[in-house]
């Protein structure tokens, strides 16, 4: 375990690089106009990033080998998706997701 000072320094530096990633585009884009090509590229960011954040969360990564599927997550996705289609309500989707997984675990899955 590193010393408190080393930990603190690491936290601050990690915070700075993360903050810069978030803030620099906001500052730059006040002065720079994006080209049409870049805007077209960025129009795909929402669905691509949401797909990746969802799908990669269903697995555990083992680089060099097949990722391990989290079976309980995969099964819980089904009722959750059904609720999404029926209600189109994010709160209901999240609530049913949590309940589905809790029920699966209570039944001894996962």
């Amino acid at each position: 375990m590193p010393s408190s000072n080393e930990i603190l320094l690491t936290i601050v530096l990690c915070g700075v690089v993360t903050w810069l990633s978030r803030v620099i585009p906001f500052v730059l884009l006040k002065y720079v106009k994006l080209s049409k090509g870049v805007i077209e590229f960025l129009s795909f960011v929402p669905i691509v990033i949401m797909t990746t954040l969802w799908f990669s969360n269903l697995f555990t990564v083992n680089t060099g080998h097949l990722p391990t599927l989290n079976l309980a997550y995969a099964i819980a996705t089904l009722p959750t998706f059904l609720v999404a289609v029926i209600t189109k309500n994010l709160l209901a989707i999240v609530a049913i997701g949590i309940v589905s997984l809790a029920v699966l675990r209570a039944m001894g899955m996962a």
Binding site: W54, N57, Y73, A76, A84, I96, I98, V99, A102, L104
Partner: peptide
């Protein structure tokens, strides 16, 4: 993990993706 809360984030991104696409 016992409470199933860890799935909230997975459900949320799936939900947001679905709502975005439709």
């Amino acid at each position: 993990k016992q409470l199933g809360l860890d799935f909230a984030i997975v459900a949320m991104f799936m939900g947001l993706l679905y709502l975005q696409v439709i």
